[in-house]
């Protein structure tokens, strides 16, 4: 029985979004596990809360960050959707919008920022540079795609993307959040592998500290 329904975004029909297939595939996968009605209802409440209160982190390395600022400013006003509170501390943010080129020197810093964020956390790669390296693919110092270091949820190409494109990306993320399971089952397998690795590393650090 399909318990998880198609996600709905206010005043935009489902069909107008692109790449619905991936989403439906995810829904099918989650439904295969099967859950009971109560849990799903609780899930829906949780997902409603989460997807409507995505606090992005104040992060930007170059041009795309200016469009992020424009998005916060009066004409585009991201407060309308509940993306209002841009937190400057990664601990309090839910979403990291990777705005701008990530270089070799920045990569460990970005990774650390991501690690500092509290779960559940999401990543949107904004702009050509973060998606693939953009015009700087030939460079010796640019990470060719931020997905090499972080698990990316949504890609928003453009150089820089318009604020509307930001919104589209954010709404795709909202759709993704709306079909998640909170109680019980696992949502994203690839993240788990990532997490396991992280935990292993952390244990090592603790061990070495204790030995010292």
């Amino acid at each position: 029985m399909a318990l998880i329904k198609k996600p709905n975004i206010k005043s935009i029909p489902y069909e107008e979004f692109k790449d619905n297939e991936t989403l439906e595939q995810m829904i099918d996968q989650l439904n295969e596990n099967g859950t009971n009605v109560i849990v799903t209802t609780a899930d829906q409440l949780m997902n409603w809360g989460r997807s409507n209160s995505v606090w992005p982190m104040n992060f930007g390395t170059s041009c795309c960050a200016i469009e992020l600022m424009a998005m916060g400013a009066a004409r585009f006003d991201m407060a309308r959707f509940g993306f209002e509170v841009t937190r400057t501390s990664p601990r309090q943010a839910d979403l990291i919008l990777v705005c701008g080129t990530i270089t070799y020197k920045m990569a460990p810093v970005l990774k650390r920022l991501y690690d500092q964020m509290a779960d559940p956390k999401y990543v949107i790669a904004i702009g050509g540079c973060t998606c693939t390296g953009g015009p700087f693919t030939k460079s010796y110092h640019v990470v060719k795609g931020v997905d090499k270091i972080l698990p990316v949820d949504v890609y928003v190409p453009g150089c820089p993307p318009r604020p509307e494109a930001f919104y589209y990306g954010m709404m795709q993320l909202q759709r993704k959040m709306k079909i998640e399971n909170y109680f019980g089952t696992v949502n994203r397998k690839e993240i788990d592998a990532y997490k396991r690795e992280e935990e292993k590393k952390e244990k090592e650090v603790i061990n070495t500290e204790q030995e010292a």
């Binding site: 170059s62 080129t101 270089t103 015009p135 700087f136």
Partner: peptide
């Protein structure tokens, strides 16, 4: 250097019209 993209080095392998694309992204203001 956290956003050092090596523009000067890339430029050495691009033709002149191609060079133009990179300048906008230096000082985007």
């Amino acid at each position: 250097g956290y956003i050092h993209r090596g523009v000067e080095k890339i430029s050495e392998s691009l033709t002149y019209p191609q060079l133009l694309a990179l300048t906008d992204r230096l000082d985007y203001f």
